[in-house]
Every structure is written in C-alpha cells, then in structure tokens.
Design a protein around this nucleic acid. Structure first.
Lengths: 197, 197
DNA sequence: GTCTATATGATGATAGAC
DNA sequence: GTCTATCATCATATAGAC
C-alpha cells in the first residue's frame, strides 16, 4: 500500500474550485476573474464549474461564508481564545502579515469593498456579517487589553477596532500598489501606538 | 442673447466622457464599468467613446493623471499652502468627508488598489505616482505640525502619513459596505489622536 | 453525478460613413 | 473631426451527453 496515494487525499473537486476561486478573487477582484480561469487550472471546460457552483453568485457567497466559518473557528481556538488580549492582537497582526507573505494577497474585505455595489445582494450581506463579527471581536479584545493596561489607546474600543481593521485592510492594498515597505511601516506604527508601555 | 445658453458653457464632450468615466470608476471599479455605460449616458454609441479615448487604458490613465494635477493644484493653492499644519490636516479630512457626502464615493486609490494587478501597466505607474505625492505631502505636514506641538503622534512622519492615508482610504470603503457610522467613528478617532492638546 | 456542446449577451476595439 | 456599423473575444449560463 503505497504511502503517496493515501492521505492526505487531494481535496475533492468542489473544494479545489473554491480554493482556486478564492485565490483568484483575492488576486484580481470579483469582476476580473471568470469561470474560465478556474476551468483552465483544473483542466476542464468552464461549464463544468457551473455544476459545482451554478452561478457566480453562489461561488462568491461560498467564499465569504467559508471565511466567516474560519473566523469563528480561529477566534474560538483555545490557542487563540486563551491568549492575553495583547497576544490576541499580535495574533491578528500575524494573520495580515501572512497575507503579505502569500504573494501580497489583500484580505477578503479589502478585495470586495471597492466593488461592493457591483456584487450580488447575497454577497453584500455576507460581507457585512463577516466584517461586523471581526470588528466586534477586536473591540472586545481592545476593551479587555486596556482594562489590564496591556494595550494603550484613547477613544472607544469600538471606534479603535474599526480604525485598526480599516488600516490593516488598507495596508495590504498599499503593499499591492507599491511593495512591502509601506506595509511594514504601518504595522510598526500600530505596534508602537498600541503596545506602548 | 438668452442667458441660459451662455457661460458657464457645458463641458465639451471629451471632458464629459472623462467626468462620467471617473464617476463610474469610483462607483463600480475599473473592471465593472464599460464604454457602454458612458455612451448610454451621453446618448451615443459605445464606439464613439473610442474616438475621444482610443483604449480603456487611455481613459483610465487620463482619470489618474487629472487627479495628480488636481492634487498638485490643491496642495499649492494659497488657501491651502498657507494654512497651519493642523488646518492642512483638517482640510485633508474635509476632502474625504466630501467623498462620503458624494454618494459615499471611495477615493481613487481605494477604488483601484484591490484590482491593481488587472490594471494596464501605465495606469499602475500613474497610481503609484499619485499615492507617493500625496503621502510625501502629508508626511511633511505632519513633521511641521509636530514641530510646533500642534499635532501629536509617535513614530516617523512618513510612517504616520502612510497610516493615516491608508486609514482614510479604508474608511471610505467601510462606509460603502456598511454606512456612514463607521466612517465617522474612524474620523473621530483620528482627530482625537492627532489633535489631542 | 460529472462534465461538454452550445446559446446569448456584453466587452473592447477597428474600419469606415457622414 | 465626430460618430456608427461591425467584429472577434470573452462573459455567464442552460440543456443535455456520458
């Protein structure tokens, strides 16, 4: 029984389609990737993709829904949920730094926000949910961090959470337009302000 | 001589095309607006637009180039250049608040950054120029403002300028996805931090 | 259950009419 | 100098083959 053919098994086609679509979405935006891009990569005809995801609306929604599930899972992971607030914030920064390392991928929110009005309504609603949950989580982290004097900021935790997430999404966009330098400067600035002891 | 037909004259067709294209770009993104959208609005056939701007590349470049000219003109206007640094920063915020008021338009950078890799190379270069000039200007304003203790921040003026502009671009995107509330919270947060006396 | 042949429409662009 | 008729290409999507 050859080991190479056993687990971890290749993801099934449905998952491979979703993975490719997500990568293309973050690379080109929702309106600039097509079923043809996915099909070519998989060695099938574009119409084959419609079997797995009947419309582009379905495909886009699936991408965002999976990201919402990932967020909830990540947030509730013992190795994240049991960290101190300061370490949780650092873990969040690490996620964005990971995007940078992955060919300077923008985050899902940053990829969809500008084209928001061209998105199918169902996708719009999913994206709002995703961003709201992420912001609420960070606001709670910030409140807890300030209570123990581990994090420093003025204003409300909710406003600060919005500002930080907006900055992070924007920082990945700037990295795309220029290079990693401005991204690293912005991350450094955030650390300097929030972790100032 | 009827007053209504005299000045201010309607912009010529070339300018009207550019204005419409810019509005569509900020509304839908570069890949989701077409010559047909512009043509329908002007009551001509799509191909007519190609007379004024042979390719979409030309049209996109013209939009960014005009914005670069606007930035330089605005920056050097006596009523802006002669302000105190704190007032110059407030003037910048006013520009972004103006975008919000105009049907929550994102800024040019925010509209193009995510789709950057799908843009014609000439447009990419123009966008880099625009963002660099804006960032350099703000960095200099911040440095001057801190020198007179009118503005407060830690870190380098260059990093702070990047962070602020990134936040502003992102704030308009968040406003698009949700509503004006998060945008106003972020602007309030920026004011609270920078103008803290 | 999975994929292909095909339809229909939108896109950016050219060549040429007025 | 300005715009229209037309084109080749690519888009998403349906119907049906295996």
């Amino acid at each position: 029984m050859p080991l190479a053919t056993s687990s971890p098994a290749l993801p099934d086609t449905r998952t491979r389609v979703l993975d490719l679509a997500e990568a293309l979405l973050l690379e080109r935006g929702f309106n600039a990737f097509s079923y043809q891009h996915i099909a070519k990569e998989l060695g099938v005809k574009p119409a084959a993709i419609h079997y797995h995801y009947p419309s582009k609306d379905d495909l886009g929604r699936a991408i965002i829904q999976r990201q919402v599930r990932r967020l909830r899972k990540w947030r509730d992971l013992p190795r994240v949920a049991e960290l101190t607030p300061a370490a949780q914030l650092e873990a969040l920064l690490t996620v964005y730094i990971g995007h940078l390392a992955l060919d300077r991928r923008v985050c899902l929110f940053g990829a969809l926000a500008a084209d928001f009005r061209t998105l199918p309504p169902a996708m719009q609603a999913e994206l709002q949910t995703f961003n709201r949950e992420l912001t609420d989580w960070l606001a709670q982290v910030l409140a807890a961090g300030r209570a123990t004097a581990a994090l420093t900021f003025v204003g409300s935790p909710a406003a600060k959470a919005l500002q930080i997430l907006t900055t992070l999404a924007g920082a990945l966009q700037v990295a795309r337009v220029h290079d990693e330098t401005p991204f690293r400067a912005i991350i450094g600035q955030l650390r300097l302000e929030l972790f100032s002891s």
